[in-house]
Computed example of a mutant assay.
Amino acid sequence: MIELDETDRAIVRALAADATLSAGALGRELGLSQPAAWRRIKRLREAGVFRGARLDLDGAALGFGVTVFLGVKLAAKGRASLGDFERAVQAIPEVQTVEHILGMYDYRLRVVARDVPDFERVLRRRIMALPGVGSVDANVLLSEERRPGPLG
C-alpha cells in the first residue's frame, strides 16, 4: 500500500471526478507544475492506485431501458462449477458486472436489456442456461444515484 499525502488524495479525487484532466490542468488546479503533477500521477499509476480509465455510458441513451440485478444461487458448488459459471457468464454481453458474493446468493449480476421482453429473452435463453444455475432472484432498478465512495 502506498502512502498518500493530501496532494495525492486531491489528485485522486480530481481524476475520479474527471479522468480526462491533463497533468497541466491538474497542476493548475492544485498549485503544482505540470511536471510535478505528471510525476505524481505516474507514481500513483505505478503503485496500482489507478486501475484504468472508463467511459461512463448512458444505457438509456444507447437503447437499454431496463437494468436488473440478479441474485444467482448455484445448484452445485465447487471450484469447477464456480469457474465454469464465471467463464460462461462473462461471455454474455448484457451482463455488465459479475460479483461473487457471500450470503443468500453465490453471485450478483447487473444485467441490461432494451425492455422487459428483451430481459426475459436474456434470462431464459442465456442466464438460466448457464452451467450450474440453481435459482435466480431479480430486482429491477427503478432509479440510481451516484455516490462517490471514500477516496484518499
Rank of each mutant, 00 (worst) to 15 (best):
L74V: 11
T97K: 00
A88R: 03
L55M: 08
Y107I: 14
G71T: 09
V111S: 09
L70I: 04
D84K: 01
V116P: 01
H100V: 07
L109N: 03
G78R: 02
G52F: 04
I92F: 03
V72T: 04
R51K: 15
R79I: 14
V112H: 00
V116E: 04
D58V: 05
L102C: 13
V66W: 03
L74T: 01
Y107L: 12
L74D: 03
E86F: 03
R114P: 05
E99K: 14
L109C: 03
L82N: 09
R110A: 11
D56R: 04
R87L: 12
L102T: 15
K73F: 13
L70Q: 07
R114V: 09
L102G: 14
A53I: 06
V116M: 07
V95N: 05
F69D: 15
E94I: 02
K77R: 14
R110K: 12
L102F: 14
L70D: 10
A60M: 07
L57K: 05
T67A: 14
L57R: 07
L102D: 11
Q90K: 10
V68N: 03
Y105W: 10
H100T: 13
A61W: 08
D58F: 00
S81P: 07
R54G: 01
L74Y: 12
A53F: 04
F69H: 14
D106Y: 12
L102Q: 14
V112Y: 04
A60G: 00
A75H: 14
V111Q: 06
A88N: 05
R51T: 06
A88I: 02
F85D: 08
V89K: 13
L55A: 00
Q90C: 11
A91K: 02
L82C: 03
V68P: 00
L82R: 09
P117S: 05
R108W: 11
A60H: 08
L82H: 12
A113M: 09
V89H: 09
Q90Y: 10
R108C: 12
A75C: 13
T67L: 02
G71Y: 00
L70W: 01
P93K: 11
Y105F: 13
A88H: 06
V98F: 10
G65L: 08
D115A: 01
T67E: 05
I101W: 13
F69L: 15
A60R: 08
L70N: 09
E99G: 07
D115N: 07
Y105L: 10
F85N: 06
G63F: 01
D115R: 06
L70M: 05
F85Y: 05
G83K: 00
D84R: 02
Y105Q: 10
F85A: 10
L82T: 10
I92D: 06
A113C: 07
L57G: 12
L82F: 09
G63Q: 07
M104H: 09
E99F: 15
D115P: 04
G103K: 13
V95L: 01
T67F: 10
